[in-house]
Computed example of a mutant assay.
Amino acid sequence: MARLPESFVYSANASRVVFGAGSVGRVGEEVDRLRLQRVLVLSTPQQEDFALTVASRLAAKSVGVFSGAAMHTPVNVTEQAMRDIQEKDVDGLVAIGGGSTTGLSKALALRTDLPQIAIPTTYAGSEMTPILGETANGQKKTITSPKVLPEVVIYDVDLTLSLPVALSGTSGINAIAHAVEALYAQDRNPIIDLMAGEAICALAKALPTIKLDQENREARSLALYGAWLAGTCLGAVGMSLHHKLCHTLGGTFDLPHAETHTIMLPHALAYNAPAVPEAIGRLKRVLETDDPSLALYELAGQVGAVRALKDIGMPEEGLGQARALALSNPYWNPRQLDEDRIGRLLHRAYAGLPPLVE
């Protein structure tokens, strides 16, 4: 039986979740429930066709589609979308896609306080959080505000069946990262521990099956369920070294978000492992392994993910800058940040070597 903390605080974020196959068909109901009349649908260029389909379903209550969402939420893209909002007198947002589209919607909500309906098509999880990461001048900064939490999230497994196998794997491990860091968060609590363990278990079981059978509905539903739980964890407690490293690498070197999380997670967990024995114990049980950081490294291999920063565009000469940025702007971490150890961690991640607990 898990040890109950002597005291804890649990704050639940207020959002409505609609989960189930075909639930995207209820977007009109949710627009009506929020009493919206002039909705702007958001997407990336790759998902513009589906965004247009959703906009057509909303008929007169849609003012059109903005399909310029981009990775790491660049401020200049947000400014472009703001012009659409002002010109079209928008009173609500529907965001369709992964973290890029959700991030744009949140950035717009921060500036306008417009209500949001998020329809995730990946396992990113950011739709369940009051957290926004924006990039300007090569720096990614994080903002936490209740204004950016979507009012409604629609999870429809049908929208994930066509998610490419490679992205399914990295997006799913990105979600696992939220749950892993929640297990040793400074403000962790028993409810989040339960959600995190369940999320990791669900995703670790589902992702290898999806690799073998992309349209396996049971595995896709399990992965989406795990992603919802992991996103809830991310929104409820603070993160530490892993997320700091990924924000640094993604924002500064424009590395792909999910792939960066997939590569860095085993190494960040190995770094913190000596300081978080209770979290490691839970991970051993959930992952059925004696070495959780190595198990996550091997899971990345199972789903066919790239495991080296050098293979996703990280310049070797940038490792020193990444280390310096990771040590700047002090933040909480369960283990003291050591410049040499973080340097070794980054070099192992760069080369694609297995994680090392030291």
Rank of each mutant, 00 (worst) to 15 (best):
S23L: 00
S23W: 00
V27D: 14
V27L: 03
R35D: 06
R35P: 00
L36P: 02
L36V: 04
Q37P: 04
L40H: 08
L42T: 04
T44K: 13
D49E: 15
A51T: 07
A51H: 03
A60I: 10
G64M: 05
A70T: 05
A70M: 06
A70F: 00
M71N: 09
H72P: 05
T73P: 03
V75G: 10
N76T: 06
N76I: 02
N76G: 00
A81F: 12
R83D: 15
I85Q: 05
D89H: 15
D91R: 05
L93V: 07
V94L: 14
G97F: 14
S100T: 02
T101A: 05
K106L: 14
K106Y: 10
K106M: 12
L108P: 03
L108C: 09
R111A: 13
T112M: 07
L114D: 07
A118D: 02
I119C: 06
P120Q: 01
T121F: 10
Y123H: 09
M128T: 05
M128H: 13
M128A: 07
T129E: 14
T129F: 03
T129M: 11
P130W: 01
P130N: 09
L132Y: 08
L132P: 10
T135I: 10
A136H: 10
A136T: 02
I143D: 04
T144K: 15
S145E: 09
S145D: 12
S145M: 09
K147L: 14
V148I: 13
V148F: 14
L149G: 08
E151F: 01
